[in-house]
């Protein structure tokens, strides 16, 4: 389908002998918000890190199968390009503590040694911070360190850092699990806006968050993609018993 942005074909991932992601096939459309749920250790993070090739950085980690970004296998692409096109936001906000807010936003250019003129950088910073709904809060303190911001602001700064690279897809690994409720809702509100420009994949343990923000939900269990369906369907009448047991909190 033309509208497909990322597609995993028989994707498998291992840590040594530990088969962590098993034969995952999934196809994600442009401008969709996908929630990924599942019990701890079921391979959500590993799958997510497979998409932007972070998985291969871990010693002993291997993967098989394909991850197609716009029908091109990411394994055949330049890593800088892949990670620019596929941004990632982590569980804990991790702005670079040695850089200012401004520098943090353009960190992808600075750290990769990509030359950008000051004027262009100014534009990128303003656009990215506006997109991440942070501009108004920080426009007067762009040259202060990013670590003085609140947790929610830091997380939005990290989102701006990803946006600055002009990605198509942004991966979020439990992006609000270290945030307080107010910060959480500020980040959640942002998802709704980001959706118009980007495709989002969000790993979350917060069932209500998945229900609130996502269009479709993927449920992983023991490395398998058990169910992938409209979020409404998943939360009213899931097709698989394991999904139901998980979302209703009934584990044996």
């Amino acid at each position: 389908m033309e509208n497909t942005i990322v597609k995993a074909e028989n994707y498998n991932a291992w840590f040594g002998d530990n088969h962590v992601v098993k034969d995952v096939n999934i196809s994600i459309n442009r401008n969709e918000v996908i929630a990924v749920m599942g019990p701890s250790g079921c391979g959500k993070t590993t799958f997510l890190r497979g998409i932007n090739r972070m998985h291969e950085l871990i010693p002993g980690a291997t993967a098989k199968g394909k991850i197609l970004l716009d029908s091109q296998n990411v394994l055949d692409m330049n890593v800088i390009y892949v990670r620019a096109k596929i941004g990632m936001v982590f569980q804990r906000p991790n702005p670079f503590p040695n850089l200012s807010i401004y520098e943090n936003v353009v960190a992808g250019y600075l750290l990769n040694g990509i030359k950008v003129s000051k004027a262009d950088k100014d534009v990128i910073v303003e656009k990215s911070l506006t997109s991440s709904a942070l501009w108004n809060e920080v426009k007067d303190s762009l040259h202060k360190k990013g670590t003085f911001l609140s947790g929610g602001q830091q997380q939005r700064l990290c989102i701006a850092r990803a946006i600055a690279m002009e990605p198509e897809l942004i991966l979020f690994d439990e992006p609000t699990s270290a945030l307080d409720p107010i910060s959480t809702s500020s980040v959640e509100a942002l998802f709704h806006e980001l959706k118009t420009k980007y495709t989002l994949i969000i790993v979350t343990h917060n069932m209500q968050q998945a229900a609130r923000v996502s269009d479709r939900t993927a449920f992983f269990y023991m490395g398998e993609l058990v169910e992938f369906d409209d979020t409404k369907q998943m939360f009213t009448a899931p097709a698989d018993q394991r999904t139901q047991n998980y979302i209703t909190g009934r584990f044996s």
């Binding site: 990670r83 941004g87 804990r92 702005p95 670079f96 992808g108």
Partner: peptide, 29 residues
């Protein structure tokens, strides 16, 4: 230094030696 710092740089496609020189060492300066 938290590993998340390195991850942040790696997720931007920064090669390993630049992660060390531009992020890890300055942060631990």
């Amino acid at each position: 230094l938290p590993p998340s710092l390195k991850e942040a740089a790696l997720s931007l496609g920064v090669p390993y030696h630049r992660v060390i020189l531009k992020v890890i060492v300055p942060c631990g300066f």
